[in-house]
Write a protein that binds this DNA or RNA. Structure first.
Lengths: 352, 352
DNA sequence: ATGAAAGCGCTAACAT
DNA sequence: ATGTTAGCGCTTTCAT
């Protein structure tokens, strides 16, 4: 293999496409085509080129390829709270698909959904940085969707819908409804809700829909949600615990609590423990997610498959990008509904 | 502001450096210098250029900048199990620092540490892809370190040491020692160890060091670790539970268990619960990490600040990269020891 | 302090 | 099926 002037392993200065071309006695264009699997390359040529490339440890320079092709083969995922179970699980699912499909996977953590909105406001940031963006649980306006579209960067969302972009989410209304009927079915009448509605005004869609479903579910069995049984907080453990404090301090506290996330439910469980109340007997607690730790504490929950939501979103995005129909006509893609499943463990029980 | 031929917001086709140059009546070189804060630019010029750039929504094309400058302003972090608490927390810490320092943060999930080793074996992959790499809890050989160095990509590790590269980790030996003395101090004599030593032959350093410290700690109080009190498994919940099963099936089971991660401890807790055994009274359990959920179940643990380890690793890497001393003389950087702290909650108690 | 011009390494027309 | 060539948009000597 005529590795011209470059000795096997200890080479200083990487091989460029031109080196491969010279060594395989074809033009750089042919090398480029051969290596990328494009048509119009004789199979014998392709084989030879590939062999030489491997021999030379040739790796195309991504920056050069991007500049020339105008595409980055990069997807950006934007999330707040990178360290939380929910987001890291989404990311894990998406990352696997992206890397497998040959896309660089860059994550940018936005401090708040407000910051995210600001980032999305001026899509010039994204224009030449990524071929696609995955937005997790942050509302995207139609203008932002359109702006992204115009700049030819694909969009895929999880947890929320955005314009005509592909999206995957659970039926939050059904989640709330299921929670209500489950708890009521256990005989509970004083049922409260730990809403994930916190100070961040932008993270409102999911809690709102779950609350609607919850109210509707209660109504279906002739119950109404008392105002003092609705307490908000952030989606985390502390938010859940603080909310639980307020609930349990009520003169007539609830006998069952629906927490909008397992982490909030964990917080509630801590407060029960703190007060010597037994989950599932004194107070029932039902969460949402099926967090890794849910089974540890025996938390009853409404499971959603967060990892596969991330994977699905990534797959939609890859499809969008590779079909080259990003700047094209806006054909709305059908949103994908991810299933939910009731998992009863021991934090729920009949009213005593 | 003479925004030549481009109207404020709805512009089709982004502004290039040349547009900025024309509009601010200087050369592209000056624009480049001005925008990057380089010296030898009159302050008045810089201001004018910056104003024009903002007006035009100019964003330099990263691919072009990379190609021209030969640096990517990108760091890659390699981790297995992206979704686990430990890794996602490290990543969160590192991401914040990287983005703040203007580095693209790309994560590649390697299926196993074996796969990671393979990736690191041929560093040509990385050469023009990233200015630096963060490796989390995966051993890096000196050759790999050298090879990276030669290809001018900086390295920073967390959880393990690698050659002369910056690294941050906890004193695993001390962790094991502290676990042993803590449990023994509670009066326990039959103390077992749930090791994170699983099938993956590469993830051996951490468990091994913790085990050494543990043995030493036991020895300090005149105890020895029985062979049947050492059980392995993966670092997760299931690994912990399976290991606990084996332990509790022993004719003379331990009264205290040191789990090498909180997740393993969770698994052990599940098994105790399953058998009607009370943590902290029938069997004491001590973990490592201070996982978010640890306080929920009252798990006693040896806390480490994983998030700041990620941040620290990233900061070291940024320093390494920006001081331009990547391909230079190999001056070994002092490793940074991250502190640990004993957190006693209710899964540990005196022997009964 | 500023400008002119030569690349960086690749892709994509457009030949042939 | 393969080759030629003109960029992609920036950074960076080297002049001035």
């Amino acid at each position: 293999m005529g590795a011209v002037g470059m000795s096997g392993s200890g080479l200083r200065g990487r091989a460029r496409i031109e080196d491969v071309a010279r060594a395989s006695e074809v033009s750089v264009a042919t090398v480029s085509r051969a290596l990328r699997g494009l048509p119009n390359v004789a199979e014998s040529t392709r084989l030879r080129v590939m062999a030489v490339a491997a021999d030379l440890h040739y790796q195309p320079d991504p920056a050069a390829a991007r500049l020339a092709a105008g595409r980055t083969r990069t997807v950006i995922v934007m999330v707040p709270h990178l360290a939380s179970w929910y987001f890291s699980t989404v990311i894990a699912g998406a990352e696997a698909v992206c890397n497998e499909s040959g896309y660089e996977f860059v994550v940018v953590g936005v401090g708040s959904s407000t910051e995210c909105t600001r980032l999305l406001a001026d899509t010039t940031h994204l224009e030449r940085r990524a071929d696609g963006v995955i937005i997790v649980n942050i509302p995207v306006t139609d203008e932002q969707d359109a702006s992204l579209h115009e700049r030819r960067v694909a969009l895929s969302t999880v947890g929320v819908r955005a314009g005509g972009a592909p999206s995957v989410f659970v039926d939050d209304n059904a989640v709330g409804h299921l929670a209500a009927t489950t708890l009521a079915g256990l005989g509970h009448r004083r049922i409260a809700m730990l809403s994930g509605q916190d100070a961040d005004p932008l993270n409102f869609a999911v809690p709102t829909r779950r609350a609607m479903g919850f109210r509707a579910g209660l109504a279906d069995v002739g119950l109404t949600l008392r105002d003092d049984f609705v307490v908000g907080g952030n989606f985390g453990i502390d938010g859940g615990r603080e909310a639980a404090v307020r609930l349990l301090d009520l003169p007539e506290p609830p006998t069952a609590v629906f927490a909008m996330s397992d982490e909030m439910a964990f917080g509630a469980l801590m407060e029960l423990e703190h007060r010597g109340l037994r989950p599932g007997v004194d107070v029932s607690v039902l969460g949402v997610d099926d967090h890794d730790a849910a089974r540890v504490v025996g938390l009853s929950t409404i499971r959603q498959d967060v990892g596969s939501q991330g994977a699905t979103a990534a797959r939609s995005l890859v499809a969008e990008m590779s079909e080259g129909r990003v700047g094209g006509p806006t054909d709305r893609v059908e949103p994908i509904m991810s299933p939910i499943e009731l998992v009863l463990r021991r934090t729920t029980g009949p009213v005593c």
